[in-house]
Amino acid sequence: MNGVLDVVLKNDLSEIQRLSVLAETFSGEQALPSSALFDMNLVLEEIISNVIKYAYNDDGAHQIMVRLRVHGDELSIEVEDDGLPFNPLEAPTPDITQPLEERPIGGLGLHLVKKIMDTIQYSRTNGINHLVMRKRISGQ
């Protein structure tokens, strides 16, 4: 399996739905197991919605670049945005052992991403956040 899908998104939450449809088609073309599609959709939703909600301190239009790549048994998801610098690796880890009734409502999305993906790399160059997440695709 080898394939690449590049998508350019606007900073609008409705774009996530469009992206998930494209990801599903890509997943079908690449014959990915359904678990990989679930993981991909979840990671994309968590990362992109974070960017759209928190990365921009203006009301302007921005572009977010997404690249999905399958190479052998590895899935990689790359996201680039021109928002405020934000390194998800430095985001605080929620205490998931805390009783549910005391848990804050937010903060779970990045935790899910970190648990699901095998590796996450973050860099910031020329005002661009660049995130690369990789996961080995297991069988059905």
Binding site: I105, G109, L112
Partner: peptide, 19 residues
């Protein structure tokens, strides 16, 4: 067939209010 942190937040909010 799909659940993300958004769904989890709704479940947690409902759990707390029921409690």
């Amino acid at each position: 067939n799909y659940l993300s942190s958004g769904g989890l937040r709704a479940i947690l909010t409902l759990y707390k209010s029921q409690r």
